[in-house]
Design a protein around this nucleic acid. Structure first.
Lengths: 204, 204
DNA sequence: ACCTGAACACCGTTCAAGT
DNA sequence: ACCTGAACACCGTTCAAGT
């Protein structure tokens, strides 16, 4: 990679913003959030250390963009659950939870960042929007479950937030090694049965 | 404050370690994790910026100690639930969850730190121990629930982890403002009914 | 033992300047 | 528009030294 002397020397063909987010993501997944500095991100994207300020107000703004990318990736995972089990809302919900946990275990530092405090601080509007877009997918799955008489009637938003909370909690505890008992592997069947406990309670 | 010329000029009477943790906690609750630097912590505790190295290996080690203090505080909150409802495991469990959420809303940055990635990185052994001590309290509450025939039989550890996950998820979503619908207040009754969904499913 | 100041490489952010 | 280097205050960490 990085072989020079190619045809166009145009920097980043307008894609610097995304390149910086990708660089930050890479550092986050390879190291940890303490190692994620603006200057290191810039160096990794092969620009000067002030170039990021053309695209991000400050470091928090870049972190928010990285977190937002995380919500997008999580949403993409969730959409696979819908595709895998069309017409089967129960398995959509279970697969959704399993994929949430899988996302957390594969990208622990990123999941931490997504819920680190950036949303609460209101660092960026679009971060909140992407989080709510993820919630929207859970609401869809819950609504389908209600339509199939799998879940009780009532505000789907409430049930969706409850289900999201459990999936989120399982993901956080899993990625921190607080769910595993003996082996350090995530037990998919156990996750499934944990999710089923809540679905059973939501049926009544 | 800080009036000099008191009797003993003895530094910190051996309590520097705790003073540093407290200073870090204060910065965390007043500002955010990006503002939490070792040097600022030292200045706040009125020592030189290298003094913390007598008590902590590096910055991560101090952060782990702060997170550990968080688990201790969370455990203390949970113990109040036991005291409030002796002989009433159902309300102990509900109060436990509500207090978890309350802790998160009051100390958002601290809760983030507790699950930031320090446990997974194995920064400190005692951090893991304090996390498991918190889990132990949930297991106690679950076991009491089983004894009272409120919850189904089975490994109390599994049920406890499931319940912890939901409480944790509700706390995280609440503190980030993802649970509130219109007003920005945490709706205690809604939290209770969300927890009840899981308890219902765990009864069968 | 516990604390200190000097030193170093690194960091976030601003600014004047270059194309 | 987009990128740059110089500058500044701040940061984590190490080290030799003081009591």
């Amino acid at each position: 990679m990085d072989q020079s002397a190619t045809a166009t020397t145009t920097y980043h063909h307008g894609g610097l913003r995304q390149a910086l987010i990708d660089a930050g993501l890479a550092i986050l997944n390879e190291e940890n959030v303490l190692a994620l500095s603006l200057r290191k991100v810039a160096k990794r994207a092969d620009v000067s250390h002030t170039a990021p300020y053309r695209h991000f107000k400050d470091k928090s703004d870049l972190l928010a963009a990285i977190a937002e990318e995380g919500f997008r990736a999580l949403s993409a995972e969730m959409k696979i659950a819908f595709a895998l089990f069309p017409e089967d809302p129960r398995n959509v919900l279970l697969e959704l939870g399993r994929r949430y946990v899988g996302f957390g275990v594969q990208h622990p530092a990123q999941l931490s960042l997504m819920f680190s405090d950036l949303l609460r601080q209101g660092v960026s509007d679009s971060l909140g929007e992407s989080a709510f877009a993820t919630l929207e997918l859970v609401i869809q799955a819950i609504t389908a479950g209600q339509r199939a008489n799998l879940l009780k009637a009532g505000d789907p938003q409430d049930l969706a937030r409850t289900y999201w909370a459990l999936a989120h909690g399982l993901a956080m505890l899993s990625k921190e090694g607080l769910l595993a008992t003996e082996d350090n592997e995530v037990d998919q069947d156990k996750i499934t049965s944990q999710l089923e406990n809540l679905l059973a309670g939501m049926a009544q």
